[in-house]
Structure formats: structure tokens, C-alpha cells
Design a protein around this nucleic acid. Structure first.
Length: 262
DNA sequence: AAAAAACCCAACCGCGCAAAC
DNA sequence: CGTTTGCGCGGTTGGGTTTTT
């Protein structure tokens, strides 16, 4: 036995809203508010609509603070980063984008961003497969060029160790640079959050760490003084445009590609 | 120019949760 | 307490629009 329907479907109008209906709903809410009860609102407002339909129309379209129009690159970036870590929690993602609704963000992801991400990942793997940069047992002394080919930016470390899942959970310090000039060592924990790729003739480890130096980590607050790390989720919400968040995108997508859902 | 395919997005649906009873 | 009710969420769909063939 299913759930009782919220209204009598045969007595309410469905489908697209007319400008007249929009005006009735807008005027009613302007004068009376939503009254805290969407189910009874259409009757009071004089609309032959289901309460849920009224709620959706108001929240997703008529609300005065809704931002209409296309998404900016900054908004895209935030959606990428949050989606990669939170998954399809559209309302949480939308809450970080003023004026955007969960429905907007969801539609934008499904129609635009998902394809963009997949295309980017494809080009990333093409580059990885064509341009091996180093071999095992040789700590990196040159900048791996993967990052240059990949605009989301992640860090890569070449280390002498085996592959997941046997990879030891140790802490290494690896030479790392984003600019081509060595700057500072990055502290890197090697764990299941790192990805090893065996391409038969060459091997490497991609370390999807924060991409920050120790000092940067301390200053962003991602680490506190006790070096307790924020959760991934916390960090990405707090720093949605950081390289930390960007690296998490790569990590999650590539993890899925190699190991399936985790 | 017409048909087909792809894209896009507003709207619907049903479920889980929590507040009210 | 258990039950009912309404809200909010995420998945999905219908159909209008645009692009491609």
C-alpha cells in the first residue's frame, strides 16, 4: 500500500504555470507570506494547484532573490568541487551559490558540467598514457607535466613503493612544485587516498593531497595546531575554490575509475 | 526545407525525515 | 509513546527548443 497522495490529482491543474497563475501566487505570498503551510495555500490564494506545485514554483522561479541566467565560471568551479566530495546533495551545493536553487544546480550539472568533467578526464588520461615522466625508484627531480595538461590541478609524487592495496600507510616528504621552481617540500601521507597507476613500463603514484605547503596548510585552517585535519567535506565547503578542493575532484573521479565506487 | 537527434529545464513524483498531534 | 501530516530533497520525465543530418 503506497502513500496517500497529497492532493486530488483530478481536481488540480498540472503542467506549466501561466503568467496569470504566477501573478496570483506572487501577490498572495507578497501580502500573506506562505503561512507555513503549502498544502492549504492554493485554496486560500484561489489557485487550482497542488500545494507542492505552488511551493516548487515559488522556490524555484518566482522568489525575488532567484538569480536567472547562465552560471559563471566561478559558480561552475564551486559546483565541481562540492559535487566531487558531496555527491548529488544539490541543496547543500546550492546553499553555497546565492540565488541558485537546487533544481538549477542539478540541471546545470546534468546538462553541462558532467560532460565537461568527463571530457577533461578523458584528456587527462590520454596525456597520462602518452607521456610517462619517470620510473619507479627514482624520486622526482623534474616537474611532472601532468599538471600542466590538466587545469584542475593536482599534485603528483613519484615514489618507490608498491601499489594499492598493499601500499604502506606512511608519511613521506616529497619534492613538489606547481611552478617549475622548487619551493618547499609537501608533506604527504601515502594512503588509500593516493592512486597508483601501473602502465607496464612505468609506474607512478598520484598523490591527491592538498597541494599546499605546510605553512599554507596552517594558515588556511585546514590543519589546526595539533595537525588534526579537517574532514574532506568540511574543507571543501570552507574552501570551495582552493586547490585542495580541486585536487579532491580528481581524486574522487580517478578513484572511481580505477577502483569503482568506494 | 524537413526530419531526426540532441539538448535543456520546468515540473512532477515518491520517499525520508521531523514536527505535530 | 505511535501515528499522521507536511516539507524538502533527489531522481526522473515531458515536451519545447535548438542543432545536426
Amino acid at each position: 500500500m503506497g502513500r496517500a497522495p497529497c492532493c486530488d490529482k483530478s481536481k488540480v491543474k498540472r503542467g506549466p504555470w501561466s503568467p496569470h497563475e504566477d501573478e496570483i501566487l506572487r501577490n498572495y505570498i507578497r501580502n500573506n507570506g506562505t503561512g507555513g503551510n503549502w498544502i492549504s495555500l492554493p485554496l486560500k490564494a484561489g489557485l487550482k494547484r497542488c500545494g507542492k506545485s505552488c511551493r516548487l514554483r515559488w522556490l524555484n522561479y518566482l522568489r525575488p532573490d532567484i538569480k536567472h541566467g547562465s552560471f559563471s565560471p566561478e559558480e561552475d568551479n564551486i559546483i565541481f568541487n562540492l559535487y566531487s566530495n558531496l555527491g548529488s546533495r544539490w541543496s547543500v551545493i546550492a546553499s553555497k551559490l546565492p540565488g541558485r536553487t537546487d533544481n538549477d544546480v542539478k540541471n546545470h550539472w546534468n546538462t553541462k558540467l558532467k560532460k565537461k568533467l568527463l571530457a577533461t578526464m578523458d584528456s587527462c588520461f590520454t596525456n597520462i598514457n602518452q607521456t610517462p615522466q619517470a620510473s619507479i625508484s627514482t624520486p622526482s627531480t623534474t616537474t611532472p607535466n601532468i599538471e600542466a595538461n590538466y587545469d584542475l590541478g593536482f599534485s603528483m609524487a613519484i615514489q618507490d613503493h608498491g601499489f594499492l592495496p598493499e601500499m604502506p600507510s606512511i608519511v613521506d616528504v616529497v619534492n613538489y612544485t606547481q611552478t617549475g621552481n622548487y619551493t618547499a617540500p609537501e608533506y604527504s601521507s601515502v594512503s588509500n587516498s593516493s592512486i597508483a597507476v601501473d602502465n607496464n613500463t612505468w609506474e607512478f603514484l598520484m598523490d591527491f593531497g592538498p597541494g599546499f605547503t605546510y605553512d599554507q596548510m596552517m594558515s588556511t585552517g585546514i590543519w589546526d595546531n595539533n595537525q588534526d585535519q579537517m574532514s574532506f567535506e568540511e574543507a571543501v565547503i570552507n574552501f570551495p575554490t582552493s586547490s585542495f578542493a580541486s585536487s579532491a575532484v580528481c581524486h574522487n573521479v580517478i578513484s572511481n575509475k580505477f577502483y569503482g565506487n568506494y
